[in-house]
Amino acid sequence: MEPSSLGRRSKQVRAKKRIEQLKGFYIHLVVFVLVNIMIITGAVIGNMNNGESFVDSFFNFNTFSTFIFWGIGVIFHGFKVFSYNPFFSKAWEERQIQKYMDADKNEMKKYS
């Protein structure tokens, strides 16, 4: 194989992997929305059948607990797929690399 075809193949593999990640995230998001609509609807109707008002049953923590905790998971999934990392940014990585390079340079100066 020619080098250009290897590069093209590599790009194609990376693009396919990226599409699979995006597709996985969007499927996760759709399932999250649909399932939570059903859970919230069922919880509100069930609470109303037990004598609570609509407002009391809707603004109950138990009604939204699955939505909240699963939502945290969806957010982190999105961070991963869209390469967003608020804690370990590129600038942080560069500072850490520079720190270790400086430490190595200082260590080498001890022995010269």
Rank of each mutant, 00 (worst) to 15 (best):
G7Q: 03
D102G: 03
F61Q: 09
S10E: 04
D104E: 13
S53I: 07
N47T: 09
G24D: 05
A91W: 02
F69K: 08
N50R: 09
R14H: 09
V74C: 02
F59L: 04
E93I: 11
I27D: 01
V35S: 12
Y84H: 12
I37Q: 08
T66N: 14
I27W: 05
S4K: 12
F64R: 01
H28C: 09
R95G: 14
G42K: 06
G24S: 11
A43E: 02
M108C: 05
V81I: 12
R95A: 15
G51Y: 01
V44S: 12
K80N: 12
S112E: 15
P86F: 07
V35Y: 01
I45T: 11
R9Y: 12
F54Y: 09
S57C: 06
N36H: 02
G71M: 10
E2L: 11
V81K: 02
V55S: 12
R95M: 15
F58V: 13
A91I: 07
P86K: 14
I40M: 00
G7I: 06
S83N: 14
I19P: 06
N62H: 02
K23M: 01
K109V: 11
Q12Y: 14
D56I: 03
K109T: 12
K80W: 15
F64V: 00
Q12E: 08
Q21L: 03
I68W: 07
E93M: 11
G51D: 07
W70F: 08
I97E: 14
V33I: 11
E52S: 12
V13S: 04
G51F: 02
Y100M: 11
S5Y: 15
G71N: 14
Y100H: 00
F32C: 02
S65A: 04
F67I: 03
L22K: 13
G7C: 07
F54P: 12
Y111F: 12
G78H: 10
G73D: 13
V55K: 00
S10R: 05
R18H: 13
I27P: 02
I45V: 14
K105V: 04
N36W: 01
F76G: 05
G7N: 10
G24N: 08
Y84T: 15
F69N: 09
N106E: 14
K17N: 03
Q21A: 00
K90I: 14
S65G: 00
I37V: 15
F25K: 09
K80L: 06
N62T: 03
E93H: 04
E20V: 06
I39C: 02
S89W: 05
I40K: 07
R14E: 10
N60F: 06
P3F: 13
V44A: 00
I75A: 13
E94R: 13
D104K: 13
L29M: 12
P3H: 07
V33Y: 01
V31M: 00
A43N: 04
K80G: 04
F54G: 02
F76T: 15
A15E: 07
H77D: 12
K23D: 04
S4M: 04
V31I: 01
K105M: 15
R18V: 03
V81H: 10
A15L: 13
R18F: 15
K16N: 07
E107A: 15
Y26A: 09
S53V: 09
F76K: 14
I19S: 10
M48Q: 06
T63Q: 05
K11D: 14
V31C: 01
N85W: 04
E93D: 06
K110G: 03
K80I: 14
